[in-house]
Every structure is written in C-alpha cells, then in structure tokens.
C-alpha cells in the first residue's frame, strides 16, 4: 500500500510514476510529483519506481477557472 495525496492506494511491484498516474486517471498535464518529499522531473516518470509504503504527492496546478 502507498499513500497518494494522503490516501491509501494499492501498490504493485514495478509500479512507476507513470503507471501510478495512469491508474489514478491523472490525465492533467500540469502537475508536480513528489515521492517522499523529493521532486520527480517529468522525464523520469517512466523510469522512477515507487516502493511499497512510499508517500506520493501529485499536485494538480490549477486554481483557476
């Protein structure tokens, strides 16, 4: 199990940041990802692995409308 934006989410071996975004249906492009507080640049989404127990923040940057 991992935390995504403070809520539990099931983890599986080999889960990358990209896979997590796809599973959460996070399609908005203008986001910031932090894993255990560390910023993950967009070019690393495909390769950065998420470990069981990680705390992931996916901040959607829109306060607009």
């Amino acid at each position: 199990m991992i935390k995504v934006n403070t809520e539990d989410f099931p983890w599986h071996p080999g889960m990358t940041v990209r896979a997590l975004l796809d599973e959460k249906l996070f399609t908005f492009r203008h986001i910031i990802v932090r894993v255990n507080g560390e910023f993950v640049p967009e070019e690393d989404y495909e390769k950065q692995l998420i470990q069981d127990g990680d705390d992931v923040l996916v901040l959607h940057l829109m306060a607009g409308g």
Binding site: N5, T6, E7, F26, F28, L57, V58, L59, H60, L61, M62, A63, G64, G65
Partner: peptide, 18 residues
Amino acid sequence: QHDEAWLIFMDMVNKQLP
C-alpha cells in the same frame, strides 16, 4: 460564479484542504 474561488483540484484531488 467561479471568479472568487476555484478550489476543486486543491480540495478534491490534491487533498490540500483536509
């Protein structure tokens, strides 16, 4: 009208306003 506040992502998705 949403011109005062649009908080949906902060609240519903980012969970920044618990």
